[in-house]
Write a protein that binds this DNA or RNA. Structure first.
Lengths: 234, 234, 234, 234
DNA sequence: GATGAATGAGTATTCATTCAT
DNA sequence: GATGAATGAATACTCATTCAT
């Protein structure tokens, strides 16, 4: 899980950041990462009902170690959320850096959906988990201005309908993630079909139809999706 | 739950009937219905994590009775699924009865999404639960022809783009359900906003933009949704 | 454990009492008694730290059964407390029935200490566990008037010093129980030695010589002690 | 904790000493003292359930250091016990130095009870914890002669009943500690009331009326009680 | 047939103790 | 020697499922 490896490990030299109360010992940090990776994988496989024992086993550590690094299950999931949130913010900022407003918005939707699509745990976390007041606040505080700017910039350029709002964007991403959740085991890219559909509804006055890039699921694939799809039932 | 009430109850004497293993005794069938109703209500409120004791209590019977009527929790949920599936088929047939093809398709999407929106467990079931081979097959067998007809009829009438497929329809419903799952505790009708958006992308060449019928969530409502939203985390 | 066997089982005929919501099924009540007995024994042996699994094992039932009958560990111990409390009240009433005031007070102290002495769990419960407000209140409400009467009656008869208070009595019992706790494995009756010593300090002759230096706890303080006292229950 | 501070620290160089395995390095000894102090405070507050992590934190050292200095939790508590034992012996010796035999005995009882009263863990230790054979032996070896002398001296002076024994004294202290444990959160000095009561039963005049019914524990029995007594230490 | 009592594997979490850094 | 990271057995409690009444 490349995303996790590269994050939040202070390089040996740059410890002058000084915000973190104390950098973890090398091995502790390594285990922290292992735990996050394992959590991500296990949760992706078995959903949020996965046990911390499973996570610990996958990470190759004892349960106690998980509890040493995270106050509890919810906190561990919260850490995952925080990490992914940073990625989303980065995605948003890259999208804002895009000179063309339309391309910017589209690339945000695409990259955000791609991120969610690649990680089921993240979809569940973003879509279904109630978090503590502060985490939710942080998420909003970081993402909202970026997304707001993306939308209003596109509206000012006349390429997006005037009644679209910034809060519609996460909904679009959730909806795409829901589609992805369903189709992924059969044909992972299916969600792009619905992104295209969605984009078709965005221009103030649509002129030409975009041909849908992905074929629909065949009835057989559809059935197969229903059988091996995400299991939340215990 | 009207659908449940109306199920045909075989008279005690005519057990010589062909396929059905044996018609239930009058009181047994009454209990079966009570259990399904109770399950429907309890699961709609609390989702799939509701306990069978809760269901039994709500139904006014003992747990043992639930197990006498259904092999287990999954089977009970499966029966609910079947019931809802019938509702969906009925919805589809009503939509087909609609003379105008476009109105027919739209009313199907609307009614199907409405059904999912009112029942949390149903959303979870449809979106996340893997069912047995036969149930999935039955679902497909019953729904697919109806939906296929709805789509092709609309395409023949020239009011829907040619590259839309029947399997896109359940995806649309799932996506709307995902939106509903998220926004429901704050503003339950929000999903209609996204149905409108979606419909805007369906015509072969869109002429006028449909004004979105529901306002978007305010940032504050958005945050509140994140806090009290569907909790799958135990 | 004879005391437990005879208690709180409604005789088949006398169900007109009607206070209890519903009499337990025969087997359920039998198991309830088994659990209480086992709890009493196990707690007596291993102290309040004994696990409910131990209790269940001793009772020959599964843990779930224990939890079906009692909401949790504390509730189980509370039930034990309630049972013993009834015994104490009965002891107090027998003591009041005694015509001679001095004999009455002495027999209460003796019988109460005997009760505590025979059951270590009870000693711990009475001495160390903080219970819910209502249980403590019930204990006080039932015992206090009886004990108050025992003391004042003896004082009126001139056989007990005037500065003794009703709240001194439970303290005496606790102190004897502490002695019993210690000496029991070696010589179980040792506490009687200290009861005799204590009784020697009660006649009024002594109060002239040494007035008691600290005021006794008021009934309200006593109750407050029962509520915030040392909690050894985990 | 004055007693702890004053312990003799062998100089680094003179490790050729006889019995002591090896004098600790200066800093090691300092840590040992810090740990004992911290343990004393933490245990006094929270009782024996306090964790070693708490102790280590309070002492400003790592848990590992605690384990380097003491084999385990029980050993640490044992060391505390030893320390308190020294205090008791000192108290006893001060009491013996008292010219008046009665005052001597009373001041021992008072000071000993005061010591126990101030430290919850100590109460638990003295009253409930079974210690290793050697610790109990040491306790007896050190305390018994002092207490025996205190008692017999008072008896010789004619101010204490003849049937009192040395082993009655620790029982008196335990009983007072039990009272203290109970009343402490409400009115900490309450135990003095019961000390006064107890003292009232000691003069020889009393023994004429009621000969004590049970023999006292012999010193050997006392020791045996200390070893097999109720164990609350986990 | 109905009931609800009994079961016990499973879950999150804690803490004394060990061991790598 | 000191540190604190890692360990995992233990504990209270839940709930789907079975079975005696």
């Amino acid at each position: 899980m490349g995303t996790l490896e590269g994050m939040s490990i202070d390089e040996p030299g740059e410890d002058c950041g000084a915000v973190t109360p104390r950098p973890l010992r090398r091995d502790a940090e390594r285990n922290r990462q292992r735990i996050l990776c394992a959590a991500s994988e296990v949760l992706a496989e078995r959903g949020l009902d996965a046990t911390l024992d499973d996570v610990a086993h996958k990470a190759g550590v004892g349960v106690g170690t998980v509890y040493r690094r995270f106050p509890g299950k919810e906190a561990l999931i919260g850490a995952l959320f925080d990490d992914r949130l940073s990625s989303l913010v980065a995605i948003g900022e890259r999208a804002l850096a895009e000179p063309d407003p339309w391309t910017g918005l589209v690339s945000y939707l695409e990259a955000a959906a791609e991120l969610l699509t690649a990680d089921r745990a993240l979809r569940q976390i973003l879509m279904f988990t109630a978090f503590g007041r502060d985490q939710a606040a942080r998420a909003r505080a970081q993402l909202q201005p970026v997304v707001t700017r993306l939308v209003s910039r596109a509206q000012d350029a006349g390429c997006v309908r005037a009644d679209l709002r910034a809060t519609d964007v996460p909904f679009a991403v959730f909806m795409l993630a829901a589609a992805a959740d369903y189709a992924r085991p059969v044909r992972p890219a299916t969600w792009r079909r619905y992104l295209a559909l969605l984009l078709d509804s965005l221009p103030p006055a649509r002129s030409a139809t975009t041909p849908l890039p992905e074929p629909p699921l065949s009835p057989a694939e559809m059935q197969s999706a229903m059988q091996c799809g995400p299991v939340y039932l215990r």
